[in-house]
């Protein structure tokens, strides 16, 4: 057992910025949706749009980071141990069974995480970004404008954006709970804050 750097400085910055932004976008977004009342509608719109731009910058940085460091490989889905991982969460965890996969700096995600995070990266976040940008930049049909830029109505965009938001709320709930399933309930949290985590030694296996 030894303490290892699992999450690099940028990795942590990206994670926490992302979490703050998503929660903030959620709060302001659901205020625009009419579910909450906090900032006031007009402020909520301004803040939501501002946060969205910051999020876009962050996404840009994150994409760069993923490719330059090769971190993107962490998210390649695998069926190996997938069933075992699901079974662990459903039963093993109650029997105090060992984690079916080993967390290392090179492979820090379990198969279920790989799958869910990949879905976030290539499906949910892109849907939110695209529908969000359309939300901001759509043009009502105007007689003199370029037809292809016109969008007849917001309904489809808004429904997609709302559905994505509901998914992300559910994700956050599950995520916040599942991070307590490390070696100790706070091990994962501490790791994401400090970057270091005590991992099983490769030789101890």
């Amino acid at each position: 057992m030894k303490k290892q750097l699992v999450y690099s400085r940028f990795n942590r910055f990206w994670h926490w910025m992302q979490s703050v932004l998503i929660i903030f976008l959620g709060l302001t977004g659901f205020e625009i949706h009419g579910s909450l009342s906090f900032f006031g509608f007009d402020q909520a719109v301004t803040l939501h749009n501002t946060a969205a731009y910051i999020f876009l910058v962050l996404i840009g940085l994150a994409i760069f980071w993923h490719f330059t460091t090769g971190e993107w490989r962490q998210y390649l889905p695998t069926r190996q141990h997938l069933r075992a991982q699901i079974e662990y969460y459903l039963t093993g965890i109650f029997r105090n069974a060992p984690h079916p996969t080993r967390k290392t700096a090179i492979s820090k995600l379990n198969p279920l995480q790989k799958l869910v995070y990949l879905a976030l990266k290539i499906l949910v976040i892109p849907i939110m970004v695209v529908s969000g940008l359309l939300f901001m930049y759509y043009r009502y049909p105007q007689s003199s404008s370029i037809q292809s830029l016109n969008i007849d109505g917001l309904e489809a965009i808004a429904i997609l954006h709302t559905a994505g938001a509901f998914f992300l709320v559910s994700f956050i709930i599950a995520h916040l709970y599942l991070i307590t399933t490390g070696h100790t309930p706070t091990a994962n949290l501490k790791a994401m804050i400090t970057g270091y985590e005590v991992l099983e030694d490769e030789h101890s296996k």
């Binding site: 625009i32 949706h33 009419g34 509608f41 109505g153 917001l154 309904e155 808004a158 429904i159 709302t162």
Partner: peptide
């Protein structure tokens, strides 16, 4: 038409 804050699916 669909209006944010007023309408939902």
């Amino acid at each position: 038409f669909y209006m944010p804050g007023r309408d939902y699916n």
